[in-house]
Design a binder for these strands. Structure first.
Lengths: 155, 155
DNA sequence: TGTCAATAATTAACACGTTAATCATTCTCG
DNA sequence: CGAGAATGATTAACGTGTTAATTATTGACA
């Protein structure tokens, strides 16, 4: 009974050969490697996505941030409250449109990014070393093609 | 400004070109098409995974079911309580090992599967028609290769 | 200009994801 | 046999996912 840690694909019916499950399994396996590091820094995977986007796009609003970080607006609303209390981000009402909330990193939020980024990069490099750089690039390309096809199909 | 419904990849920095996010985005886009159907039948995506596995592997125990359906044991524990109350599954203590819980579908659970399966198959066919059958198979193959590589790498 | 539709954000409610801790049963081995 | 480790399942606590409803503000246009 070698490699007992592998998920029992093949041992069950065709359930395992579906695209949603394949995507889920790979995502799990990949995130497994990032999570302990993020936990040491006190942020979740989603919070880290939000902070990273804010690092690249200061004064973005909630809607654009949610889209860029792939979160739904309710999740983001909850989350930004906590991040603001922790002093990692700050929010202001947009002057030209009173409905919009504008978000940006604080100094300590920016500091956190500089601490996490190199560790994150190192883990990505580990994964590339295991899987192969070109294989990962090819996979991402293929994923983007599928995404575009589904986007264009609309309904 | 054509195709405004697309997520703004490219419009932000390199954040969008990471494997975890690409996997997340495709999974979202794919599940989008299944969710309304499942909702009409009163089951979540995860519940549907569990029921499907039980349809293929009767009298499976919690641990094996969790692995096969890609859920963590705590999620499964919560969930099976609800499914049992709704009469879709039944559970018994394993006679040979008092720690194990054995699960199986009830008649109405089996009926639900026969109702959902054809609709699920139809949606999969739609996706195949949009993306291309061979492209999807190639993608799944690639995903499984990545999974195996990461599995074998252990740490 | 004033009313109604549209948009941005939030809140609410329920289910799942994740980690750590706990409980019960079985296994191991002195 | 019996004490303690190992295993299977559950519970607890907190954060996120998802849908629907609500609030505040802006926009459209009769």
């Amino acid at each position: 009974m070698a490699h007992s840690s592998q998920t029992d694909r093949a041992s069950l019916g065709a359930t395992g050969r579906s695209l949603p499950i394949a995507l889920l399994r790979v995502r799990e396996k990949v995130m497994e490697r990032f999570r302990p590091m993020l936990q040491r820094h006190g942020v979740t995977e989603q919070q880290w996505r939000v902070l990273r986007v804010l690092g690249e796009a200061p004064d973005i609003d909630m809607s654009a941030l949610a889209k860029a970080a792939n979160l739904l607006p309710p999740s983001l609303s909850r989350m930004t409250k906590g991040l603001e209390e922790r002093g990692l981000i700050s929010t202001t009402r947009a002057s030209d449109d009173g409905r919009r909330t504008s978000l940006r990193l604080t100094a300590s939020g920016a500091t956190l990014i500089t601490q996490v980024t190199p560790e994150s990069t190192a883990i990505s490099a580990e994964i590339e070393a295991i899987v192969g750089r070109s294989e990962i690039q090819a996979l991402i390309d293929q994923l983007e093609r599928v995404l575009d096809a589904l986007d264009k199909a609309k309904a």
